[in-house]
Design a protein around this nucleic acid. Sequence first.
RNA 1: GCCGGAGUGGUGGAAUUGGUAUACACGCACGACUCAAAAUCGUGUGUCGCAAGACAUGGGAGUUCAAGUCUCCCCUCCGGCACCA
Length: 972
Amino acid sequence: MKSYDHKKIEKKWQKDWAKSGLYETKDNSKKPKFYCLDMFPYPSGEGLHVGHPKGYIATDIYSRYMRMKGFNVLHPMGWDAFGLPAENYAIKNKVHPKISTAKNIKHYKQQLEMLGLSYDWTREIDTTDPAYYRWTQWIFLQMFKQGLAYESYEPINWCPSCQTGLANEDLEDGKCERCGSEIEKKPMRQWVLKITDYADRLLNDLSTTDYDRPKIIDKTNPPIKGSPFVERNVAHAIVFDPKNKKYLIIRNKKHGWDTLVIGGIEKGETAEETARREVREETGYTDLEFKKILGGETEAHYYAKHKGENRIAFATAVYFELKSNKRVPIADGEDAADEVLWIEEKDFVPGKMINAELPVWLARLKNPKLGWPKPLLEWPESIKEAQRNWIGRSEGLLFTAPVKDTDIKIQTFSAHFEAFYADTFVVIAPDHPLLPQLVAGTANEKEVLKFSQDLVKKRIKEGFNANKEPEGIFTGRYIVDPIGNGDLPIWVANFAIADYGTGIVKASCHDERDFAFAKKYNIKMKPVLFPADPAEKAKVKNLEVCYFDMKNGLLAEPAEFAGKKAGDIRADIANFAVKKGLAVKKVSYKLRDWVFSRQRYWGEPIPLIHCEKCGVVAVPEKDLPVELPKVKSYAPTGTGESPLADIKSWVNTKCPTCKGPAKRETNTMPQWAGSSWYYLRYMDPKNKKALVDSTKEKYWSPVDLYVGGTEHATRHLIYARFWHKFLNDIKVVSTNEPFKRFGKSLGLVLGEDGRKMSKRWGNVVNPDEVVATYGADTMRLYEMFMGPFDQEIAWNTQSMIGSRRFLEKVWKLSEKVGKKTTPEIAVDLHRTVKKVGEDIESFNFNTAVSSLMILANSLEKCETIARADFEALIKLLAPFSPHIAEELWSGKGSVHNAPWPIYDEAKTISAMVTIIIQVNGKVRGNINVKMGTVETTVVEEAMSCASVAMHISGKEIKKTIFIPNKLVNFVV
RNA sequence: GCCGGAGUGGUGGAAUUGGUAUACACGCACGACUCAAAAUCGUGUGUCGCAAGACAUGGGAGUUCAAGUCUCCCCUCCGGCACCA
């Protein structure tokens, strides 16, 4: 047999696949669809390092797996090619970005092809292609027409080095994310997208529950490996008390988990009878009125480990209402660990019983057609949480009060308003636009303004975080307090932020910063919230400490709520304030509108025209795209205009409405524009009439699996969701969310020294060299085998050799293909098929590879290997190392079109099992017995085992624990 | 400060969800093949101990017949948000 020559093999099959169009995807197919997407790269001049393709390898494995499972897979790639590096390169080297970008794309593509990634290159897209950005401009125009894009002159983040405005999302610790420069606040004309209109939807859909039709269990498929299982029909009792609007639950004392009253339906019993009986036995309540029955044994199910049994339960829920509080004594004994409670639905703490939970049943009660719940977005919790933080919703009250001696009314926002009777002063942000108007005419007007400006400067210089010392100045103005605390002084305070809430805050002693501020400047304070402890209360009263527990603190004022816990009456006090006309309810977000203008060259021109007569006019859709003209100098002007402003022939145009002289908008779009919708274009990349054909869109949407770095959690992923929701609103797309599942977040590949791979450290590993020396198949396998996908792991070339050795082992195994494999291998084979499939689906690629290695090790010990068994191994290997698999494949056609092997659950269980024998919890030996051997036999054999006998002889066996097919533990 | 995630051999990491801790791989040691080396194959490899055994999953307590896994407290590291009212 020839030796394994990866160079020859890989080149050969890459050519062959390209020639036969193996990975080209059809838009119509009877197969179910699967859309598997990578975050497309920005093609930089440096090319790829070995870490970049990690995510691409994972999606490639997933795509190949799904193709073999019989799905019609869309797996495309493209280029996010607008952006600063190409432009900076142009400024330095006078090379048009279009040319350098094209060169970089070519290099990137060649590097990706070298890895044998199964992209459908006929669908390749490039955001800088006018045929593509025509549609980016088109979407912007739709937003403009809907009033979602507006011109603003508010101060924005300005990067003095990049000479452009930036969105909040482009900052990192108050610095430019790209170049690290300190950001200035600069007022300038800009285009802004109203993402805040979508804040609520963007937030809510992170937690929205979708419903699946319930699955029918495959009864031959026990959920708990190697253990016998018991089928039970189970009744869940939902007992509602209409008087108190509460539900009856049982709470586990140890864990605090809640469950409904649940019991197994005995022979001859109806579900209703069971539910009644269980409620009586476990809680004592007897006077229940039957209302409704839910579920049914074939519809509902869950797996559970219950009283030593592995159970599959077919659940039915019976809905009762409580007629009276009649109770009989509760049966003693087994349920001492639980307590019986009446709770509101919102207070339910989910227990461990899958699908046995109250909210699930109530949702089903309201809508019987619902299946079982699952999240609308199957995303890592960390990314959802980052988005929630970013959107930063808080509910509060908006107070309005007149400013004494002026016509001005100011509004303040409070999220912690429970103790608003304590408010004794007001603070305003030093950069608040209302400030000059507010202090106009006061004695020290100039001093206040000067001081405020200095505060702003200082804050920029030191960064927000550094300066914890409260600083401020009295404005000379007061608001009239409607609740009778007299006139409240208005102070400028360095900790107030102009663009959150209203930028003005009512302040009291029940906030740490306000308290410190008032102490420093001797401002009057008035505590109204106290701890229960008398000594502590005295301290608060004397203003020795700041008390801000809005949950457990007891209110003294207003009189209506005196003595109540603040946490309990939050909603009531809000209503009280609203009723009295003091405030209105208001929701505030940290999310800001998206600053969408860049004063740079290399981006999509914003398709608007400024006409002296007609104002801002949209470029007619038929005139799209507005192409980026060639310029002489790419350098930013720094004037708030992009370099486009200098091209008179381009800037000067006619107004599409009045045909009079007009000027084009010279700002360009940010880099995030093109990537906010690119996944739609792959569905229909060449369409000249529409962004995407609606039939194709309906077939392919949504993206089933998306993989990329978490650094995009609060930018690209929020922007794309925003655009998608907008496109859904204007009926261009049919779904509410673009990306159904986000695979595990991508963990970086670090350099061999454990630091981030970078030119600066000289630790960049070039994939070209790795592929040349070890082969693409080895590199792919190694990157998946390194460790958990979402973890940062240092590259180790030495360690990679193990993956190469494994492939050579498989290569040699092909020589052993003969008639028969040792029969014991069957169990290993079925187990491996199961494990590899499950691991790919759950992104546990490292353990998938390890199980392949284990299988290969077992096969190696066989004299000969049956052809079918060897082919199964090759199929399992194919997604990971496609070239060698194709080379070793002897079946019909390409291995990548071959059906994924099927495993038989029954055959994954070996006939013999090893039983561990413990004495007092310590392992003293083991015995091999037949699967399912009964307790008495096992115990007998275990006791006769020499190493065990030694530890039990002469001692009294107090207890024997027997876990079928697993272990015996003697307690002596 | 708040919210998420993690801590297991010399190294990367497994562990069927409470049931043999260290699978798989790297490295290392010894052996086979070789004039020799590389490659390959075999054996061994948590720590202490000649052994029986004891001790080991960041630290400390607890629950349990049984804890890497569950509960509580503490430490360290990584990520997100952060003068957000």
